[in-house]
């Protein structure tokens, strides 16, 4: 997609996490699909990119359809290597409702199910609001995973959700990362969902080695690079 909002924010450099030239200067407001088979580290890659942003004083928002908020926060503590960070979590798993702020300042919003798009939107809005109020201007959002959402909602709705959310992130100048299990959907579904994003980080496994490449952010796909 090509939204054309002007941003004064600085470009996002993701090469600390994934050393591919196409990721050295990603335009604020870009939304990137992280696609690959199951168990290839899509989510870990997205979270590492968020933690790397936090080390550069950026905000982070995690929308989780698989892990509870407390697990996300504990995991984030390890990745970021610090005790407190500007993080908002939208938890679509726990059996709770509403929002709360934990001791270390993490805002958590609970949504009843990964199919509750309005609830997810409210959670994201509040998380962004909280980060903005704490003085954070730039940030990165990770949603994991679209595959789970696709089991709750049809393809059309998920596509529209991605488009609307991407536009929202564009307006906020945030970077978006959305994971999808490429083995869980037919080619046509993947093709349609891809169209809602500015670009894609594709992950594959060859002879026991995980590799990644970037498609769509530059005029031609990057070469495959081993993923650590």
């Amino acid at each position: 997609m090509a939204t054309n909002t002007d941003h004064t924010g600085t470009m996002y450099d993701l090469t600390n996490v994934l050393d591919i030239d196409a990721l050295a200067s990603v335009r604020p407001g870009s939304s990137i699909l992280v696609s690959g088979p199951a168990m290839t580290g899509k989510e870990a890659l997205a979270y590492d990119i968020l933690a790397d942003g936090v080390r550069q004083n950026e905000g982070a928002v995690v929308v989780s359809t698989g892990d509870r908020a407390d697990n996300i926060i504990a995991d984030f503590r390890e990745r970021a290597g610090s005790e407190s960070f500007p993080l908002g979590v939208v938890d679509c798993v726990s059996d709770a409702s509403g929002g709360e702020t934990t001791d270390n300042g993490v805002y958590t919003h609970h949504v009843s199910s990964p199919g509750d798009l309005t609830g997810i939107g409210i959670g994201i809005t509040k998380a962004l609001e909280g980060l903005h109020e704490s003085g954070v201007e730039d940030g990165r959002l990770a949603l994991s995973s679209l595959s789970t959402m696709l089991t709750y909602t049809d393809r059309k709705t998920v596509f529209k959700f991605c488009h609307v959310l991407s536009s929202r992130l564009d307006a906020a100048g945030y970077l978006g990362l959305f994971t999808i299990d490429s083995g869980a959907h037919d080619d046509q579904t993947l093709q349609v969902i891809k169209q809602a994003f500015d670009g894609m980080i594709e992950i594959r496994e060859r002879d026991g080695t995980r590799e990644a490449r970037v498609v769509g952010l530059t005029s031609s796909p990057s070469d495959w690079k081993p993923l650590e």
Binding site: T3, R168, A171
Partner: peptide, 29 residues
């Protein structure tokens, strides 16, 4: 259409618009 959509920001212009648009995705489609 991509251009038209990015110019018709009424759908996501502020938080209220954003939420109302998401609310509309689930029903009526």
């Amino acid at each position: 259409l991509q251009d038209n959509l990015s110019q018709t920001l009424g759908g996501i212009e502020d938080d209220e618009d954003f939420i109302a648009t998401l609310r509309g995705l689930g029903n009526g489609d």
